[in-house]
Design a protein around this nucleic acid. Sequence first.
DNA 1: TGCCCGATTAACT
DNA 2: GTTAATCGGGCAA
Length: 191
Amino acid sequence: MPKRLSRTFFSPSVHKVARDLIGTTLLFKGVGGRIVEVEAYHHTDPAAHSYRGPTSRNAVMFAPPGYVYVYRSYGIHWCLNFVCEPEGSASAVLIRAIEPETGLAAMRRRRGLDEERLLCAGPGRLCEALGITRAHNGLALDAPPFALFARTGAVEIVAGPRIGITKAVDKPWRYGLKGSPFLSKAFSPPP
DNA sequence: TGCCCGATTAACT
DNA sequence: GTTAATCGGGCAA
């Protein structure tokens, strides 16, 4: 059985945590799978929600590491983030894609979709598949209904520009599991 | 108060 | 490739 991760896992820099998260297994109410794609956002990053200081929406980003930040995207979808670094540094990792492994029937039902590859391939899609909403904003990652497990073997990680943003578009702060078919979008091969 | 826009997705042409 | 859906934050007036 893989090791259960505690909140101290999130104390290092947001970029180290982002890379370390690839290959770990996330479960929410027993449903989930292996994390295959994430993006890093830091307080000093113009693309981050925390860039302009605390608001009621992003307050959790200014809290201690190891908590969940959930926000509404385009008024329609929910997006899941893990808070990193010491309190006040306001950084978080956006979870962008999961390889569905546990609770496939529940995920298919919530998504109204059969195709496994598309169940959790995108930040809005994986929140719908797992049933995560604003109601779970601020919860701890190492206590129910969340559970996070260490990866069991070595992983090969690729990096590239983040998706869907208009600021700091050149920063290669999107990380993924090399070759995974469950990414929200393929990583461009190096030049 | 009003207006614009966004860490998205699915359904179009 | 383009666009609608839909709502809260941020900023101008």
